[in-house]
């Protein structure tokens, strides 16, 4: 790790003032589980690290009639353990709790989960987000791409092939979450669904943040009564790893029929990937083995597998189906208990 100066601001405004106008000059330190590894590998080489640990306004979860406000420095464990999250945003609590390492859940933060850098091994080994060789040719299509994207990549041309690593984003997007961001010009609010972006040029990042902006909180609208939600993750092993494919679903119900559905896939594209076709297909349907399987089919229509990740198409299909069935099962449990 290179040397750097350490800043310890106590307000968001101060923190934004300590960041630089260029990417790479300064880095934000939240839980540290990602940044310190990037710095040890010289993928991140900031001159200044701005710790958010001393900023009280970034902590805590507030529950009110209008919904939930989650501070960016809330840890994954705190999110998982929070009663309102557990009761009203089931798929989100599940997503936070299924990050397999308690140590990561205790250190890792909500803001950090959204802003962590991709796990793509080309990126982590210094080939950049777009992973190109000296001639500017993309390394991923011809290389080892078993964990790379099956959606939203340029199909052999130069571009982004990594998958977004966030565990929380798919579930948060199904709830219509908004992100509050603070920068030198003040605050702005962005729907989480349009927070993530696919870089076209090296040097661009995987979200719409400016280099001197900080995610300060996540805002969730009040949970609607009787909404059924679930997150299903397909993993290679139970411990310490990132999922291969995930699906988060949120179903607004009318009796036993789906009024409207939100379905977002994770770990399949450079951004959390909404499955609009599957959402449309489910409107007016009851959730059965058959309708869930058909939604899974619809969710992976248009998938473009690379040379080594065809298996992920099947995993994504099954993740959607199982998430839907799990959400429906919560509905039945709810009725039995009620």
């Amino acid at each position: 790790m290179n040397v750097f100066e350490y800043a310890n601001p106590t307000t968001t405004k101060e923190a934004a003032g300590l960041l630089a106008a260029q990417w790479g000059e300064a880095e934000i330190l939240a839980g540290g589980t990602d940044l310190l590894s990037l710095m040890k590998n010289y993928v991140a080489t900031p001159k200044r690290v701005v710790s958010l640990r001393g900023i009280k306004e970034l902590s805590g979860i507030t529950s009110s009639a209008s919904g939930l406000r989650i501070g960016a420095m809330v840890t994954l464990q705190e999110l998982h353990d929070h009663k309102a999250v557990h009761d009203d945003y089931h798929s989100l609590a599940h997503a936070a709790g299924s990050v397999p390492s308690p140590q990561i859940r205790n250190l890792g933060t909500v803001g950090g989960d959204l802003c962590q850098r991709p796990r793509c091994w080309y990126f982590r080994n210094g080939f950049g987000l777009l992973a190109k060789d000296e001639k500017g040719q993309p390394l991923v299509p011809a290389g080892d791409n078993r964990y790379h994207a099956i959606f939203g990549h340029p199909g052999g041309s130069p571009g982004a092939y990594y998958v977004h690593p966030s565990s929380l984003a798919p579930a948060l997007i199904t709830f219509g979450a908004r992100v509050k961001v603070a920068g030198p010009k003040g605050e702005r609010e962005i729907p989480l669904a349009s927070f993530f972006a696919t870089p076209k040029r090296e040097g661009e990042r995987e979200n719409v943040l400016m280099p001197n902006e900080i995610v300060t909180e996540i805002i969730l609208a009040a949970a609607s009564k009787g909404m059924l939600t679930a997150t299903y993750e397909v993993r290679q092993k139970e411990a310490l790893d990132w999922p291969l494919a995930t699906a988060s679903v949120a179903l607004r119900m009318s009796g036993d029929k789906v009024k409207s559905a939100r379905i977002v896939l994770g770990h399949v594209a450079p951004v959390p990937w909404p499955a609009h076709e599957a959402e449309k297909l489910l409107a007016g349907q009851t959730i059965t083995e058959d309708s869930a399987a058909k939604a899974g089919e619809a969710a992976v229509r248009g998938a473009k597998a690379l040379s080594g990740n065809k298996y992920k198409v099947q995993l994504a299909r099954v993740a959607v189906k199982r998430a839907l069935l799990e959400a429906a099962a919560h509905g039945k449990e709810g009725m039995q208990h009620g």
Binding site: F4, A7, N8, T10, E14
Partner: peptide, 10 residues
């Protein structure tokens, strides 16, 4: 700005 909150790199 906020120089007093900055430490290091030494």
């Amino acid at each position: 700005t906020a120089k007093n909150k900055v430490a290091g790199p030494g």
